[in-house]
Amino acid sequence: MLTPDSVIDYLVNRGILPHGGTATARPLLGGVSNEVLAVSGDGIDVVVKQALSRLRVKQEWLADPTRVLVEADALRIAGRYVPEAVPAVVDADPQQLTLTVARAPRHWADWKTQLMQGTAEPAVARLLGSTLACWHSATAARDDLPERFGTSHFEQLRIGPYYQTAAARHPDLAVTVNEFADALLADRSCLVHGDFSPKNILTDGHSAWVLDWEVAHYGSPVFDLAFLHTHLLLKAVHQPEHAAAYEQCAQAFGTSYAQTTRLPPIQPAQLAGQVGCLLLARADGKSPAEYLDPRGRQRTRALARAALTQSAGLNDLWKTLT
Rank of each mutant, 00 (worst) to 15 (best):
H217T: 08
L225F: 11
V175H: 10
F227P: 01
G219H: 01
D195W: 03
L225K: 04
I201E: 03
D224K: 11
V210T: 14
C190I: 09
H206I: 06
V215Q: 12
T230S: 13
Y218T: 00
H170C: 15
L211R: 01
A244F: 03
F196P: 03
Q248E: 14
P171I: 07
S189R: 13
Q251H: 14
K199Q: 12
F196K: 04
H217S: 09
H229C: 10
P240K: 09
C249F: 00
L191T: 01
C190W: 05
E214S: 13
L202R: 07
A250P: 04
L234C: 07
L202F: 14
G205I: 03
H193M: 14
V210W: 01
A250R: 13
A181S: 10
C249G: 03
A208D: 00
D182P: 03
V192K: 05
T176Q: 12
H231Y: 15
L184T: 00
T203C: 07
V175T: 15
L228F: 11
V177T: 08
A174E: 11
D224T: 09
H206F: 13
R169P: 07
W213H: 11
V192T: 08
P240F: 03
A186R: 15
E179W: 01
P171W: 09
L211V: 14
G205N: 09
Y246C: 08
V215N: 05
H217I: 05
C249D: 08
G219C: 09
A183Y: 04
V177W: 00
A226P: 02
S189Q: 15
F223L: 10
N178S: 11
E247L: 09
A181C: 07
L234E: 02
V210P: 02
S207R: 15
T176K: 13
R188M: 04
V215W: 00
L191D: 00
F180A: 06
H238K: 12
H231I: 11
D204A: 10
T230Q: 14
Y218I: 04
H242D: 14
Q251P: 03
H238T: 08
W209N: 01
L185I: 07
H229A: 13
N200M: 09
G194P: 00
H229W: 04
N178W: 00
A236L: 07
D224C: 10
Y218L: 10
F196I: 08
L233T: 07
A250I: 00
C249N: 10
C249L: 02
H231K: 12
V192N: 01
V175P: 03
V237A: 06
L184Q: 15
N200G: 06
A250L: 02
T176R: 15
W213G: 00
S197K: 06
D172Q: 13
R169L: 11
H193E: 02
P221R: 05
P240N: 09
V210Y: 02
T176H: 07
A168M: 08
F223V: 08
F227K: 00
Q239G: 02
